[in-house]
Design a protein around this nucleic acid. Structure first.
Lengths: 167, 167
DNA sequence: TTATAAAGTCAATAATACTGACATATATTA
DNA sequence: TAATATATGTCAGTATTATTGACTTTATAA
């Protein structure tokens, strides 16, 4: 029975019928989930008088250690001037270190300091906790589906950049 | 084999092992997907000199026709003063109609005008198109998993409010 | 040497949110 | 009925995050 269902399901995929209402429900789900998803970090950031922009910078500097300012700009899709305000604060506050590039001295490689890592840990702990609970509650099959759909929702250029960066 | 795998997978769910890196990948996925998800409407809104706040208002007024101002405040989780700016514009521009409540005349029931429906259609067409493409590419099993995980990511109070509202 | 590139900065502006203080109309309660 | 509470709306001031445009400094490349 499982096998039979699987075959039927797969052959249905090509003509998956989706009402506008079902799609709108998915859209709302994204909205509400994203809201919950950002709520825990938002609370923590208040203690530092930082905002989401700081979180994003800290997150990506942690994930791609030593990345260049330009890389960060590409990832975030904001202007140099917007990033500068945030980065300036993080550097002045001693959470981020900006090292002159070894090959090209115009470049700056960004790293988290110990203090920066501590904030990152706090933020990602909260977010991971929520993700882990959701993953566990939904089950591993659901997680695969979740990841697959999210990947397809992204802009193609974004998807290519992310996946090519992965080693 | 399918049945055997299913059993193994389900029994694994309780102890689903997730590395911090896997969870961080999920977190990034949410970030990038949400970004893509809002990019199409953002372009359309520029033509109207509106922002995401207007989109959200229009979306929920369409989805819950005749909802009260207080209902909308609850859903959006913003202050009366923040909503007012947006709602004032939409009403003045003739996209939203505010009708005095029939039972309680203090209340105002919100509706989209024909013009408002036209904007809603434009915005949701773009977003539905992206969702439909993602759903089709991922397959119906994946869609189920996607929805399930998103529901679990939401705040419990949000989830209860959403699901109870559904008839 | 001149042009290009990476990073940083200053200034002005916009969208979205916030808090606090009040006003108005209507409903509910004492 | 009089006092209180509720739903909505508004004014003013402030903060965060983003924008555009103009420029500078330093370093690499043509």
């Amino acid at each position: 029975m499982a096998d039979h269902n699987r075959v039927v399901t797969n052959s249905m995929d090509a003509m998956l019928f989706l009402t506008d209402d079902q799609l709108l429900q998915g859209i709302e789900l994204m909205y509400f989930a994203y809201k919950g998803f950002t709520s825990d970090p938002d609370l923590i950031l208040q203690n530092y008088s930082y905002g989401r922009a700081h979180h994003r910078a800290v997150h990506f500097i942690n994930r791609r250690k030593g990345l260049k300012v330009n890389d960060l700009l590409d990832i975030l899709g904001i202007t140099k001037q917007s990033l500068n305000r945030v980065l300036r604060q993080l550097i002045d506050d001693g959470l981020v270190e900006s090292r002159v590039g070894q090959l090209d001295k115009r470049e700056r490689n960004l790293f988290l300091t110990e203090e920066g890592k501590e904030l990152e840990r706090q933020l990602s702990d909260a977010q991971r906790k929520r993700m882990r609970a959701a993953y566990r509650a939904a089950g591993s099959d659901a997680v695969q589906g979740f990841r697959l759909v999210l990947e397809k929702i992204m802009d193609v250029e974004t998807r290519n950049r992310i996946t090519q960066d992965k080693e």
